[in-house]
């Protein structure tokens, strides 16, 4: 088995476990609380409006915005880590059919693994800070994933005559 293929498969499996562990933690300790917070802040906001209490309504809606911002990202983190992990594994399994030079194949695999870790990590950091740093991390991760995927698509598209003899590596 080539180093690139091993990197993709083992990186993907590790990321699946990590993503599921994160999902389990999220389901037990965060999801219900977040949903309760979203519902309660919305209801409080409109109840405040019904009492002509604009300030209370605004405060509750600001709270809604903050909780929803974090909730949406936590769902995205869980789904993207697991989704990208699956992509790493399946592409790793099919990687012998990417008809490119060994060095480029390894760089593409490394880029995809790094992107798969960094992209949801950037989203996670966005829940801690609203600054430009976490967004830049997210953009970097997404760019790595798209660039690596584009390179691999090119490798697959080069056709079966470029396959390494259809061989199965150990």
């Amino acid at each position: 088995m080539s180093g690139a293929r091993r990197l993709l498969i083992l990186g993907g499996l590790a990321l699946v476990i990590w993503g599921m562990g994160y999902g389990l933690w999220y389901a037990v300790f965060a999801e219900h609380q977040a949903l309760d917070g979203i519902g309660a802040s919305l209801a409080t906001g409109f109840a405040g409006a019904a009492k002509h209490d604009g300030a209370a309504a605004q405060a509750a809606l600001t709270r809604y915005r903050e909780v929803k911002y974090v909730y949406d990202r936590q769902v995205d983190i869980h789904s993207h880590w697991i989704g990208l992990a699956m992509l790493l594994i399946v592409l790793g399994i099919a990687y012998e059919r990417v008809a490119l030079g060994e060095r480029l194949r390894y760089l593409l695999a490394l880029g995809l693994v790094l992107g798969a870790v960094i992209f949801p990590l950037g989203v996670l950091l966005q829940t801690l800070s609203h600054g430009a740093g976490p967004r830049a991390v997210t953009v970097l991760g997404a760019g790595l994933v798209i660039g690596a995927l584009g390179g691999m698509a090119l490798g697959f598209a080069r056709g079966p005559r470029f396959y390494r003899g259809g061989r199965t590596a150990s």
């Binding site: 906001g45 405040g48 409006a49 309504a57 809606l61 809604y64 915005r65 929803k68």
Partner: peptide, 16 residues
């Protein structure tokens, strides 16, 4: 995300 918050705020302010 911004529009979501703004529209809810407009609803609440309009209702008040």
């Amino acid at each position: 995300e911004t529009t979501d918050y703004n529209l809810l705020s407009q609803m609440a302010a309009g209702a008040a």
